[in-house]
Amino acid sequence: MEKETRATVGSRVITFLIMFAIWLLLSGRFDAFHLVLGAVSCALVAAFSADLLLPSPDLPRMPGVWWRFIKYIPWLLYQVLVANIHVMYLVFHPRMMELIDPQIMEFDSRLKSDMARVTLANSITLTPGTITIYISLYGHITFHVIDIESGKTLPWIMEARIGEVFGE
């Protein structure tokens, strides 16, 4: 019980810090009036809804996840760029109608937590050539591919990387 309350306070403080940074960025004024106004409103929001952004039980292992997630982003951007160039080649190709071969594929994911599944679905959708249609409660993923090559290997590699990030 003791531990749980402390974790909640920690998540509130982190929520407050993130929101205050965004306030500073968006307001762009650093006089006393605006700073106090921002601190008060951020404190109110953090007090009411800290649990939405950071669920308390996960808090102790969050720093590691965030660090690995930051390292995952450049790889994702590179894959997105490569796939973008592939789709752009398809779009500008004169005989596009023969090259594309839209299909619906499915596979079973072994990721357990909601956050990991959301990240996987968004990563698959962000990569051109594949769009997530549905994820069932048991991790069964249905996705639409524009040609067989785009969907053959990438979602599996992506799943392994994301499993690594979230420690599953």
Binding site: N84, F92, P128
Partner: peptide
Amino acid sequence: LLFFTGGAVGIIRMPDFYSRLHPAGKLDTM
């Protein structure tokens, strides 16, 4: 701008609604 052009042309040329989403959603974002 090149990516934007690809997205716009793809929206016109693709045969159906599902495949139109590929250029529309992603090339525009890039």
